[in-house]
Design a binder for these strands. Structure first.
Lengths: 153, 153
DNA sequence: TCTGAAATATCTCCTAA
DNA sequence: TTAGGAGATATTTCAGA
C-alpha cells in the first residue's frame, strides 16, 4: 500500500469536513490545477481511503431525538451465539453503532429512536428477542456534547 | 416547521447512503424530472434537515485503528465544572463522540487513536489534565460490528 | 506528476403550466 | 409543485512537459 503524501492528507481533511467542495475549489486551496487534485481524489477513492460520501441529517428535525447507549452481555460465550448476535444487530435499523468490547460487557450499542415509548418497544420486541442475551443495561443520552465523523489526520 | 412528504423522505434516504448521487440519478429513481428534485434538495438543505455532506474515511488505512470507549464521572457536579469539561472535550481531536449521560456515569466518550501507546499518552497528557474528573474507565473495542451515519427514516 | 485545454455532463435558474 | 430548456459551471479525459 502506497503512503499518502501531504497533499493527499490535506485533500482528505477537506473532504471530511465538506464533501461538496469542488475539485476546482480544492485545487485553489492547495495551489494546484484541477487535474492533479482530480486524479488524487480518484486514487483515494479507489484505494479505499474514502469509503463513501454521505449526507448527515439533523436528528431532531427527522424525529430521532432519543439516543441510548445499551450495554449487552451474553449468557454463553461460544462463537456460534456471538456470530448470531452480530448478524441480528445488523438488521436492526435503530442501531447505528455496535462494538464488540473487551472487558465485562460484551457489546456496546448506540441506538436512535423517536421517543422513550419507541425505545421500550425496541427493547421489548426486537433487542430482547435475540437469543442468549444475559444482561442488558440501557442508559440515556441527556445531551450530545460532540459528534463528528472526522478523524484527526 | 413544514412536514416532509414521501418524496422528501426518499431523497433523504438516498443522500444518506450516497451523497454523490446526481440530481438526475435521483430524479430517475423517483420518476421525476431534475427541477423538482433540485428544488427539494435545496429546501432540505436550507431548512437544516441536511446538516452537511462529508467523506467517510477508512480508519484502518489512515492508521486510527484503535477505538476506545471511555466513561468519565465528575468529582463535583456543579454547572461550572460540567461546562468547562464540555469545552475542553471539544478541543481534543481524538474524541469523535461525547455524550452527557443519565445515570452513574456522567460522560461517555468514543476515542480514535493509532495505538495503545497513543491512547496511554492521550489519557495521561490530555484527558486526565481536565479538572474535576473523578472516575475514568476505559474499555477497548475488539471489533466494530456496525457503524453507520444513517438514520432509519 | 503536473499543466492546460477540449469534450461531456451536471447544475442552476428561469418561464410557463 | 412540476416540466422543460438554456447558459453557466463542473467533471472527466488526454496530450505534452
Amino acid at each position: 500500500m502506497e503512503q499518502l503524501d501531504k497533499i493527499d492528507t490535506r485533500i482528505l481533511r477537506i473532504l471530511q469536513k465538506d464533501a461538496k467542495k469542488t475539485t476546482k475549489e480544492i485545487a485553489t486551496m492547495l495551489n494546484l490545477t484541477v487535474s492533479p487534485v482530480y486524479e488524487r481524489i480518484r486514487r483515494l477513492e479507489s484505494l479505499g481511503y474514502i469509503k463513501q460520501y454521505v449526507a448527515i441529517l439533523d436528528k431532531k428535525l427527522i424525529n430521532r431525538q432519543v439516543t441510548t447507549i445499551c450495554q449487552v452481555s451474553m449468557r454463553y460465550h461460544n462463537e456460534e451465539f456471538i456470530e448470531k448476535f452480530e448478524q441480528e444487530i445488523q438488521k436492526l435499523e435503530e442501531v447505528q453503532e455496535c462494538y464488540h468490547m473487551a472487558g465485562q460487557v460484551d457489546f456496546l450499542l448506540k441506538i436512535h429512536v423517536a421517543s422513550l415509548d419507541d425505545y421500550h418497544d425496541f427493547v421489548k420486541y426486537k433487542l430482547s428477542k435475540i437469543d442468549n442475551i444475559g444482561v442488558l443495561n440501557s442508559t440515556f443520552v441527556l445531551k450530545e456534547i460532540k459528534h463528528t465523523s472526522e478523524f484527526y489526520i
